[in-house]
Design a protein around this nucleic acid. Structure first.
Length: 659
RNA sequence: GCCCAUGUAGCUCAGGAGGUAGAGCACAUCCUUGGUAAGGAUGAGGUCACCGGUUCAAAUCCGGUCGUGGGCUCCA
């Protein structure tokens, strides 16, 4: 495939559309882009030839498939952001002499660079860095590639006192990599490249925040100052990004949780421990009720287990070994050490062991909303998303080997239908296979991985594979839901476990009268109720669908004269199972509407003289203004229709207020 | 845990280079009976997170503790 064809006097490149073109050797990516079109030449950032990404200005000497990379390509964006990191590093080193450079890669959205400055950066520094970056971009300085040998590189970076770069060079020596550095404007950096043609391609950028980060991610190493930024070839893209950020901030579950009186976390009870207020608790219970109902319908049996257990149980399960970091210290109960539970599985195993099991009994599917406590370091706690006490929607399936595949198929379908019910139809599936350090027989791993794969294929699901990403005790499938603004959240997980059945010596009696080891599968759909509630809250931007809303409608009386009608109406709607309250305060209707809108109550029923006389309601939906007048029965029917999982009548429309 | 930032009324925040604090919203009372996102007046409300130090004097300066926020995964 890879041929040097200088002898032929031409190189042949294949464009993504399959067409072939010939160019003289030494032609650059830019030349090719220009020969295709003006716009492409202007947008081109780099070129991919034979699978390797190169500078646009690099002379090409091979034939093969090419792709002109622009900002529209993931690889083009990587190059763009990497170059942006260089521009930032130049600004920083020029403004803060003595700053040492570490690394500066592109990330999912944007880039960062790690610095070791004489003293930590302040938020005000960022503005100065941005100004200098604008100057560097105005220069439109070209990025130039230079290749050299190790000694030259060591001399260059040694003279500059770039200790981190010297460390990197040691690593590259081991790996035998070609050493290269790039220059642009007055800046020089050790860099594999490639880069965009010149700094002027960066039309809009923003430095976002400063963070501490360890050199090479190791806690013992010096802590560096990391600056995160984003950059784009178009101002519009930056403003889109800033809008997405604002939107995410507007939906922040911590903020909405306070505003809508759903939950709190009080330092008097402790960091990472959630207090559910009545409205939040109401929604949680709706979720739980639905969860129980679906599990009972789907062949699960419900179990309950205690919050503490004797330490020996956790020793037998192995948690005191491999999970010690996340467990609270044990405590004495009548001279017996006990342990707060970080997981539910050992209890379910004890239930399994409480009786002799026959192959006819399997599969056994035991589900529990089990509250567990895990020690998380203070710095990682985050609202409801990372807490110390939470309720897992846990279940364990004990089955025979010949049942595994069908069980997985069923769990997968069950999971997806639950997500749809909660308004998440878009789910990403990821299969994680055997890691290097793993226990269990290779044959078991193969069986389990095949079962997972077959289940995915049988259901016609597309999925990603994370080779070696499984737990040490078994392979797994992770399920990630996509929310209303495109963010992905891992919720579900389906995990094989070869460890616990061995450790507890689980068995069932087969048709041959012999003992056999059952297969154990852990699975969670929502993950934790706390976290899932947070995700749901952000997904709906606080406007819960009617079936979950603690208050589905509020009756707003225009004057005190219609107070009696308002209460009678409330009774009538309540008897149709509508969750409704009355706001009969002697306040103006505008104020009542404003407050109900801010509480994101799905429906507001405005009643005055007219409605009172006609036995109607004037309906206003959250974020959708006045929907007009309808009869009480009509409204009740509307609520009934929307009061079902999966129906999202209110938040489908734009949630337009700017509170 | 580590780096940086931060903690002032129920909430959102001003202020404070050392002399015991302020706004808006919310709350209470009164006036207003008003038709689709804020009617008006009056009032109450704070050991300025906690503990210690310096000082005649600390909310302010120093140290510690706790909490909160952004990070500490995506490898020139």
């Amino acid at each position: 495939m890879k041929t040097t064809e200088a002898s032929k006097g031409t190189i042949t490149v294949t464009l993504p559309d399959g067409s072939e073109r010939e160019y003289p050797p030494g032609t650059t990516g830019y030349d090719i882009a220009a020969s295709i079109g003006k716009k492409l030449a202007r947008d081109a950032l780099a070129i991919k030839l034979n699978g390797s990404v190169r500078d646009l200005r690099a002379p090409l000497d091979e034939s093969g498939p090419i792709q002109i990379l622009t900002f529209a390509d993931p690889e083009g964006r990587e190059v763009f952001w990497h170059s942006s990191a260089h521009v930032m590093a130049q600004a920083v080193t020029e403004l803060v002499p003595g700053t040492k450079l570490a690394i500066g890669p592109p990330i999912e959205e944007g880039f960062y660079y790690d610095f070791d400055p004489p003293k930590p950066f302040t938020p005000e520094d960022l503005e100065k860095f941005e100004e200098r970056m604008s100057e560097i971009i105005a220069e439109d300085a070209p990025f130039k590639r230079n290749e050299c040998d190790l000694d030259v590189a060591r001399q260059i970076f040694g003279e500059r006192g770039e200790q981190y770069k010297l460390e990197l060079l040691d690593k590259f020596e081991e790996e035998g990599e070609q050493i290269s550095y790039y220059t642009s404007s007055r800046f020089l950096d050790l860099c594999r490249g490639p880069h965009i043609p010149s700094t002027g391609k960066i039309k809009a950028f923003k430095l976002l925040n400063i963070a501490g980060a360890y050199w090479r991610d190791a806690e013992g190493n010096p802590q560096l100052q990391r600056i995160y930024g984003v950059a784009y070839p178009d101002k519009k893209l930056l403003s889109d990004f800033m809008h997405r950020r604002e939107e995410a901030e507007r939906r922040d579950h911590r903020r909405l949780g306070k505003q809508l009186k759903l939950f709190s976390i009080d330092e008097n009870s402790g960091a990472g421990l959630v207090l559910w207020h009545p409205r939040g608790a109401f929604i949680r219970r709706r979720i739980e009720d639905y969860w129980y109902k679906r599990h009972e319908e789907s062949g699960y049996e419900l179990v309950y287990s205690p919050h503490i257990a004797r330490l020996g149980l956790w020793e037998q399960s192995g948690h005191t070994g491999f999970y010690a970091e996340n467990m609270y210290p044990p405590f004495e109960v009548e001279n017996n050490p006990h342990q707060l539970k970080p997981m539910n599985c050992p209890f379910h195993i004890l239930i399994y062991q409480s009786d002799l099991r026959s192959y006819r009994d399997l599969p056994m599917r035991w589900a529990e909303l089990g509250t567990v406590y895990r020690y998380e370091r203070g710095g990682v706690l985050h609202g409801l998303f990372r807490v110390r006490g939470f309720t897992q929607d846990d279940a364990h399936i004990f089955c025979r080997r010949d049942q595994v595949e069908e069980e997985i198929v069923t769990v997968l379908d069950f999971s997806l239908s639950m997500y749809t019910a909660f308004g998440f139809p878009d789910v990403r599936i990821c299969l994680s296979t055997r890691p290097e350090k793993a226990i269990g027989e290779p044959a078991d791993w193969e069986m389990a991985e095949n079962a997972l794969r077959h289940a995915l294929e049988q259901g016609n699901h597309t999925y990603d594979v994370d080779e070696g990403g499984g737990a040490f005790y078994g392979p797994k499938i992770d399920l990630h839901v996509r929310d209303a603004i495109g963010r992905s959240w891992q919720c579900g997980t389906i995990q094989f476990d070869f460890n616990l059945p061995e450790r507890f010596d689980l068995s069932y009696i087969g048709s041959d009268g012999q003992k056999h080891r059952p297969v154990m599968v852990h699975r969670a759909l929502l993950g934790s109720l706390e976290r899932f509630f947070g995700i749901l809250l952000e997904h709906h931007a606080g406007t819960f669908p009617v079936w979950l809303a603690p208050e589905q409608a509020i009756i707003l009386s225009v004057t005190e004269k219609v107070e009696d009608y308002a209460y009678a109406l409330a009774d009538e709607l309540k008897s149709s199972d509508v969750r409704v309250n009355v706001d009969a305060r002697p306040e103006k209707i505008g104020l009542k509407i404003r407050e109900a809108e801010m509480q994101k109550i799905p429906y507001m029923l405005i009643v005055g003289d007219r409605e009172s006389q006609d036995h109607t309601v004037s309906v206003r939906a959250h974020g959708r203004r006045d929907l007009g007048t309808m009869s009480v029965d009509e409204f009740a029917a509307r609520i009934r229709a929307e009061n079902r999982p999966g129906v999202d009548g209110t938040s489908i429309s734009a949630d337009a207020e700017g509170t």
